[in-house]
Design a protein around this nucleic acid. Structure first.
Lengths: 321, 321
DNA sequence: CATGATCATTGTCCTGGACAAAACGTGATT
DNA sequence: AATCACGTTTTGTCCAGGACAATGATCATG
């Protein structure tokens, strides 16, 4: 089977066998590293003349690392809203210039956050200590809203501008998870209402938004159960109904296509009984409330508390359950 | 763009619009839900005559949920070592019988674990409380080795046997993460040696093995930095060298192809200076020590402590760094 | 029994064509 | 100025069917 070896890399030894770096990646590895599907990579080659990979003895594509780097830059710019045809012909340097030209100067201001510097410099111990200190000082709720949320945004923007890379983002996510999960675990609070089931749709893998929501809700005395990311819709329905939950909460990162988020939410709405509320929040849903009948759009972390208040103030819920 | 809607589902309204369930999934959704690639799905249809999806107005495949269910069963059996041609013609009931026939009767014994029952019954609060209690009773290290590890295995086997589903596994993973990460965060211990960089390769997304390793190491006074899952090799190299780590630790679930694990590890070994040790553990590597020169294979959690002892007893490390 | 050669199975990659959904641009309307 | 409606262009995914190498299975030999 040709691709059973899912991470096949061709190594070209230059002089010695020490410190060899992979010189070319097969199409599956490029798909993983850039997030561009194999079909997209092939159709770009056909249409725009880039990338133009080498071929191995069998005629399979082999992408030099330089081209993969450029693909990564292009991917970033497309995520910012640019279109492939406009940028794919540019040189690597021009692409870097485009990325640096992001008019979002707020990012530069946010750069002053000392915590962001810890991320940049890989100071994980200091980062963890500072996060924990902020948690103690602010309490769980304000910690999520006033420390983690802005930091999240600053990291996202730094990522867009290419100022941080995979390891920095991973490190950040790990440390925040450690702190948030520890704090969430400390709040036992079972048996209270409402009972909220938290998760994301199958194509959404970002976990921090979910954890922040859970932290906020738990701090307000709700009884939360998180299924983590990527729960298939039918399973989500079963879990919500069988567990007699009051609310299903969904989190969407800004990268999630808004249109798909709306479709998926309406689909879920049709699958769940009306007695179960649906709350949905995150970047993909800003200002989409009117298009989502039967769904409470959460506009930011503070709004979570408002939604909770509304639910508790609502005339009647089956309290005999 | 045809697949920009990555989670397109065709809903057939039977009578009312309430409680509609998706009747058929497009090929991308099936790929996500079953883990079988689009190419594999198409080639199976060509070769074995299953699955045989409907077609939409455009000629695109639409897989009825019944066929997706069967595909999931087939996938499970293949993961157990069966071959597609032998089982793809069987009926759903016959497949279920095959799964139930797993000779692994240890799973039945492990079923008695009370914690596993909490997972089965979605008793998340009780599960969390029991985990926390076990942690307090046993301490972090024994908790990882004597509670989490066996539970992990039992869950894995129950999954293979089809006794638990996506939400149960997610719920379990979430709760264990909450407890483990809280405990890991409590150990500060920076500045000690060795400095260990923990992560997984890009195709490995299971996080629990990594967390268990981190818990064990942290409890022994190592200075751990986890990058979470899926770190690309070049970035891993950079992070390890720039952060002047003594050890890079990799975790492999049992589902990771052993051959690929070996290739990837040797590749990493060639990329890192000899002064940085590589430790690798997890199901995919049982008994593979001899094929991996320059890599310390960790045979189980207890062996982690042994490896740590060996490292500390080794004649000389650059202590002036 | 272990080991090596032969054969069958199987997953991935290839080419080149097609199409619908999203983005864009334009002009009319509030 | 915004907002909306509409035609045009761009773009990502899907399709068919052929090919091949890596893996597993089978069988012969030491």
């Amino acid at each position: 089977m040709r691709c059973q070896a899912r991470y096949r890399i061709i190594v070209l030894d230059n002089m010695e066998t020490h410190h060899t770096l992979p010189a070319a990646l097969n199409i599956a590895a490029v798909e993983r590293d850039t997030g561009l599907s194999k079909d997209t990579l092939r159709v770009w080659e056909r249409r725009y003349g880039f990338p133009v990979p080498e071929r191995d003895a069998n005629g399979d594509r082999l992408y030099p690392v330089a081209q993969v780097e450029k693909l990564r830059l292009i991917r970033r710019l497309i995520d910012q809203g640019r279109r492939p045809a406009k940028i794919i012909g540019a040189s690597t340097d021009e692409l870097l210039a485009l990325i640096a030209d992001t008019p979002d100067s707020r990012a530069a201001a946010a750069t002053d956050l000392p915590l962001l510097q810890y991320v940049r410099l890989h100071r994980s111990a200091e980062l963890a200590a500072a996060l924990r200190q902020a948690l103690l000082r602010q309490g769980l709720q304000r910690f999520a809203a006033e420390t983690v949320a802005p930091l999240n945004e600053a990291i996202g923007e730094a990522w867009m501008r290419g100022e941080i890379d995979v390891p920095e983002e991973h490190l950040y996510t790990e440390q925040v998870q450690n702190v948030l999960r520890g704090a969430i675990g400390a709040h036992v609070g079972s048996g209270t209402r409402p009972r909220v089931l938290l998760t994301t749709f199958p194509d959404e893998e970002h976990v921090l938004g979910l954890l922040m929501a859970e932290a906020t809700l738990v701090a307000e005395g709700a009884c939360c159960l998180s299924l983590g990311t990527r729960t298939p819709l039918p399973e989500l329905r079963t879990a919500a109904v069988d567990g007699s939950f009051d609310v299903v909460g969904l989190s969407f990162s800004a990268a999630y296509p808004a249109r798909q988020a709306i479709d998926d939410l309406l689909q879920l709405r049709a699958m769940l009984p009306a007695s179960i509320a649906i709350w949905a929040g995150g970047g993909a849903l800003r200002g989409k409330q009117k298009r989502l009948p039967g769904i409470r759009v959460i506009e930011g972390l503070e709004d979570t508390i408002a939604a909770l208040g509304e639910w508790r103030a609502a005339p009647r819920h089956d309290l005999n359950a």
